[in-house]
Amino acid sequence: MKQFEYKVESIQIQLKDGNDFNTAMTEKLNSLGKEGWELTGVNGIVFYFKREIC
């Protein structure tokens, strides 16, 4: 049976020097994805992730 661990993270993007919100958010989500986290839900600024435990 697969087992998962879960992560709840508030993500607030602070834009500096004309950075684009979409670019900044994409970079943050890709960073978490590289760690194996899969986005499962969003409620405002609260993001829910899961990843399989090996």
Rank of each mutant, 00 (worst) to 15 (best):
M1Q: 09
M1N: 04
K2P: 13
K2A: 13
K2Y: 08
K2Q: 15
K2T: 10
K2E: 15
Q3L: 05
Q3C: 07
Q3W: 03
Q3E: 10
Q3M: 11
Q3P: 07
F4Y: 15
F4I: 07
F4Q: 10
F4H: 14
E5Q: 08
E5H: 11
K7E: 07
V8P: 02
V8G: 10
V8L: 14
S10N: 05
I11P: 07
I11M: 02
I11C: 06
Q12E: 11
I13H: 11
Q14T: 08
Q14C: 01
Q14L: 03
Q14R: 10
L15P: 08
K16G: 02
K16S: 15
D17H: 06
G18F: 10
N19C: 07
N19W: 07
N19Q: 13
D20N: 11
D20A: 04
D20I: 04
D20G: 01
F21G: 03
F21P: 10
N22R: 08
N22P: 00
N22T: 09
N22M: 07
T23M: 05
T23L: 00
T23D: 08
A24P: 03
A24S: 14
M25S: 01
M25Q: 12
T26S: 15
T26R: 05
T26Y: 13
T26E: 12
E27H: 15
E27V: 14
E27R: 14
E27C: 13
L29W: 04
L29M: 03
L29T: 04
L29E: 03
L29P: 08
N30D: 14
S31A: 15
S31K: 15
S31Q: 14
L32R: 12
L32A: 09
L32E: 13
G33L: 05
G33P: 08
G33F: 06
K34T: 14
K34V: 08
E35F: 05
E35N: 08
E35V: 12
G36S: 06
G36Q: 03
G36Y: 10
G36R: 03
E38W: 13
E38M: 06
E38N: 14
E38C: 10
L39P: 00
L39W: 01
T40M: 09
T40K: 07
G41A: 13
G41I: 12
G41K: 02
G41R: 11
V42G: 00
V42N: 02
V42D: 02
V42A: 00
V42M: 05
V42E: 02
N43C: 11
N43R: 05
G44E: 11
G44F: 02
G44R: 03
V46A: 11
V46I: 12
V46Q: 09
F47I: 00
F47Q: 00
Y48N: 04
Y48V: 00
Y48H: 06
F49E: 04
K50P: 01
K50G: 00
K50Q: 01
K50I: 00
R51G: 00
R51D: 02
R51Q: 03
R51N: 01
R51W: 00
R51K: 03
R51M: 00
E52H: 02
E52D: 04
I53S: 06
I53E: 13
C54F: 08
C54L: 07
C54H: 14
